[in-house]
Computed example of a mutant assay.
Amino acid sequence: MDETYYLGAYWGARKESAKECAARTEVLFASLASVDPSFARWFQLGKSRKEGLKRSIEPRSQDLEKIISRGRDKVVEELGFRFSGWNGAPDDRDASAFDVTCGGYSARVSNFWLFDLPVQGPSADRVLTGSILAGLLRATAVAWEPDWGVVLSHSHRDLVEPHRVPRAPYIGWVTYLARHRGTVPPLPAPVHIEPVENKGTLIILTPERFTVSNPEHVSLAERVRGLLERGGLLEP
Results as ranks from 00 to 15, higher is better:
residue 15 K to Y: 03
residue 122 P to I: 06
residue 170 Y to D: 13
residue 219 S to I: 04
residue 40 A to R: 12
residue 30 A to N: 14
residue 154 H to P: 03
residue 132 I to V: 15
residue 181 R to L: 00
residue 77 E to N: 04
residue 173 W to R: 09
residue 58 E to T: 14
residue 99 D to V: 06
residue 73 D to G: 02
residue 139 A to N: 07
residue 2 D to K: 09
residue 91 D to A: 13
residue 79 L to Q: 07
residue 94 D to R: 02
residue 224 V to A: 07
residue 48 S to N: 00
residue 73 D to F: 04
residue 103 G to Y: 02
residue 223 R to I: 07
residue 141 A to H: 12
residue 44 Q to L: 13
residue 219 S to H: 10
residue 165 V to E: 13
residue 185 P to A: 11
residue 85 G to L: 15
residue 234 L to Q: 09
residue 214 N to G: 05
residue 38 S to P: 00
residue 89 A to E: 15
residue 204 I to S: 15
residue 97 A to H: 09
residue 206 T to V: 13
residue 42 W to H: 04
residue 224 V to S: 05
residue 187 L to E: 06
residue 174 V to C: 01
residue 108 R to G: 10
residue 137 L to H: 07
residue 211 T to D: 01
residue 200 G to Y: 10
residue 170 Y to S: 10
residue 82 R to Y: 15
residue 43 F to Y: 15
residue 164 R to W: 03
residue 65 E to L: 11
residue 204 I to E: 15
residue 90 P to L: 13
residue 10 Y to K: 01
residue 77 E to R: 07
residue 144 W to Y: 15
residue 101 T to F: 02
residue 38 S to R: 02
residue 115 F to D: 05
residue 134 A to N: 02
residue 61 S to Y: 05
residue 192 H to I: 02
residue 71 G to Q: 06
residue 179 R to H: 15
residue 93 R to H: 01
residue 168 A to Q: 06
residue 72 R to L: 09
residue 50 K to L: 10
residue 31 S to M: 12
residue 21 C to Q: 05
residue 90 P to F: 14
residue 174 V to F: 00
residue 149 G to K: 14
residue 63 D to A: 14
residue 160 V to R: 00
residue 13 A to L: 06
residue 142 V to I: 15
residue 24 R to Y: 02
residue 184 V to L: 01
residue 157 R to I: 00
residue 134 A to V: 02
residue 213 S to Y: 13
residue 110 S to Y: 06
residue 11 W to Q: 09
residue 17 S to F: 05
residue 178 A to F: 02
residue 163 H to V: 03
residue 118 P to G: 07
residue 182 G to A: 02
residue 228 L to F: 08
residue 105 Y to H: 14
residue 8 G to C: 08
residue 197 E to T: 11
residue 135 G to I: 04
residue 150 V to P: 14
residue 15 K to C: 06
residue 18 A to N: 08
residue 196 V to F: 04
residue 198 N to W: 07
residue 8 G to E: 13
residue 47 K to Y: 07
residue 174 V to W: 00
residue 29 F to K: 09
residue 12 G to Y: 07
residue 176 Y to K: 13
residue 142 V to M: 11
residue 136 L to T: 01
residue 18 A to R: 05
residue 185 P to V: 10
residue 177 L to M: 14
residue 200 G to T: 13
residue 98 F to Y: 12
residue 217 H to W: 00
residue 213 S to A: 13
residue 36 D to G: 03
residue 92 D to Y: 10
residue 79 L to W: 11
residue 77 E to V: 04
residue 180 H to V: 00
residue 225 R to L: 00
residue 208 E to W: 11
residue 163 H to C: 01
residue 56 S to W: 09
residue 73 D to N: 14
residue 26 E to N: 09
residue 178 A to N: 13
residue 178 A to C: 14
residue 9 A to E: 08
residue 175 T to K: 05
residue 206 T to M: 11
residue 89 A to P: 08
residue 125 D to Q: 14
residue 184 V to P: 00
residue 166 P to H: 07
residue 65 E to M: 12
residue 20 E to V: 10
residue 136 L to D: 01
residue 116 D to T: 06
residue 197 E to D: 15
residue 87 N to I: 11
residue 104 G to H: 06
residue 211 T to V: 07
residue 73 D to Y: 04
residue 16 E to K: 08
residue 88 G to L: 14
residue 47 K to W: 09
residue 195 P to L: 01
residue 160 V to K: 00
residue 179 R to S: 15
residue 40 A to V: 04
residue 186 P to V: 12
residue 201 T to F: 12
residue 153 S to N: 03
residue 63 D to Y: 12
residue 159 L to E: 10
residue 118 P to H: 09
residue 125 D to Y: 01
residue 183 T to H: 05
residue 102 C to K: 04
residue 31 S to N: 12
